[in-house]
Amino acid sequence: MSATTAVFKREFRGYFGTPLAYVFLVAFLATAAFMPFSQSFFEIRDASLRLFFASLPSLFAFFAPAVAMRMWAEERRTGTIELLLTLPVTIKQAVLGKFLAGWAFFGIALLLTSSMVFTVSYLGDPDLGPIFTGYVGAFLLAGAYLAIGAFFSALTKNQVIAFVLGAAACALFVWVGSPAVTKFVEGSESGAISRFVSNFLGSMSFLTHYDPMQQGMLALGHVVAILGTTVGFLCATVLLLTETKSR
């Protein structure tokens, strides 16, 4: 058994060893189901999970930092990080193990929302392709948010600060490509540079990559963009923790 797997198992069990995981799951499932119903899911009578998937990025922006905030901040506050780093586990393995455990936890949370799939299949004849790609997109998105949350958790000892910073960063990654943000960045000027800036910001936005998946399209570029951000933030987390270890 590799060290990553050992960390993964320890963390994953840790989630379910406390009531916190269940509280989180209950809150997530209730909100994820409530959002589409509050937006007239039943009254519109459209056999798709469009409203459900559209609400997930905003939900993840809140729930992913909530899960990730204790990943490293708690270890740093209680000092168990020193203990962990003395074990025969590299920082990379520890970061990956903890991240994968959190991601698997989100996978379970998403799996439990399948009652919505049964509901919509009972009511009509939905196109299962976009539902499948929607779930793939949502899972990737959860991973990216979790990596961002983990990074901010490694940055501070305070869980609350880690949560606030993580949630703000996640929200930024959702809305960064929206016209409201590009307008703020560009002002009223327009030119080659501002066009580049708005294109750049657009490519940063998770919605740019997630929206086609909601509609039933899986494109390598979009998958790589989300996974790339995830890997980037995990690498940054490793670098931050390396500095902690060296101190």
Partner: peptide, 17 residues
């Protein structure tokens, strides 16, 4: 991410509709 979006935005696409 920017480069990938610009260069590979529409390659290896799987249409599952």
């Amino acid at each position: 991410t920017f480069l990938v979006t610009q260069c590979a935005g529409d390659v290896a696409r799987f249409d599952l509709t």
